[in-house]
Nucleic acid binder design. Structure first.
Length: 273
DNA sequence: TCGAATGTTGCGAA
DNA sequence: TTTCGCAACATTCG
């Protein structure tokens, strides 16, 4: 479910509730939530440590400890909530895959209907960094860098943008939205984009992500944060899941095609190879 | 019953 | 080496 703006929204909700709390216990209700590690090993690594910062890298949530890091990935349907530990609500939540007990006698609860979400422990972030491309909203992600990364990549632009080692944080929704804003057909080979079109796409990516963060992300099926709040960006989506509806720019009915096994929405008139 | 769904990984083949 | 398609993970919904 969540892409960069949704993960950022969750991080902003968690940060004030977790910073400077210690982890006093961990329970895996679904043993594979810590895969490939064993739940007992993970629990041993994190209990007794204090959370000094809560950050985001791509679609990962990072809890910076006094030593090492916890990384959490929500995948499709993961949710994180902070609840008072005596609260009967905490145990009545459905699909709870893991729980952290905190020193302020509250709990960080990981709910995940489809059970794809994972948590893990890292001594340092190097293994994560080698698998992730640049952060699209960082100042280091310049037009020049983006154009340089695109050079020599004959892969179609949509699967390229979905590849987290090429650029971190984009998923199906924002790739379609950014390509629409930049008027680029999703099957255009990356290496075929001129500098001007790469610049337009770079701007579109940054615009769409920051606009969505301002609206606390997009709720399509089940993204929620905090006490069940939903993202408000859904109503701002221009093409995603809007097949047959008129293009907001030219009025041509929007199309749905399949690219790299993913449903892909576009304006067949505006977006050109 | 089948297919699709906001995500990632690993494998074999071109 | 790069890219592509597909299966797998687990569940819900139309």
């Amino acid at each position: 479910m969540p892409e960069l703006p949704e993960v950022e929204t969750v991080v902003r909700y968690l940060r004030p509730q977790l910073v400077e709390r210690a982890i006093v216990g961990f329970t895996a209700h679904w043993p594979r939530v810590t895969a490939p590690a064993m739940p007992e090993d993970f629990a041993r690594q994190v209990t007794g440590r204090t959370i000094h910062a809560v950050r985001r890298r791509g679609k990962y949530i990072l809890l910076e400890l006094n030593r090492g890091y916890i990384h959490l990935h929500l995948r499709m349907t993961g949710r994180l909530l902070v609840l008072p530990s005596g609260d009967p609500e905490a145990s009545s939540q459905p699909h709870v895959t893991a729980e952290f007990d905190l020193s302020d006698s509250r709990r960080l609860v990981f709910r995940d209907m489809r059970k794809f979400g994972r948590v893990g422990y890292l001594e340092d972030l190097a293994p994560l960094e080698t698998r992730l491309g640049p952060e699209p909203l960082s100042s280091r992600f310049t037009t020049r860098l983006f154009h340089r990364l695109l050079r020599g990549r004959r892969r179609r632009i949509k699967p390229l943008l979905l590849d987290q080692s090429f650029i971190a944080g984009l998923g199906n929704i924002y790739v379609d939205e950014a390509l629409f804003l930049a008027r680029i057909h999703p099957e255009t080979p990356g290496s075929r984009l001129s500098f001007a079109r790469a610049r337009a796409l770079h701007r579109a990516i940054q615009d769409i992500l920051s606009e969505s963060i301002r609206h606390d992300g997009t709720t399509i099926i089940n993204f929620q944060y905090g006490e069940g709040s939903t993202g408000r960006f859904r109503e701002k989506l221009r093409v995603f899941r809007r097949a047959e509806q008129p293009c907001p720019v030219c009025g041509t009915p929007l199309a749905k095609i399949r690219v790299a096994q993913r449903g892909t929405y576009l304006c067949p008139a505006c977006q050109v190879p």
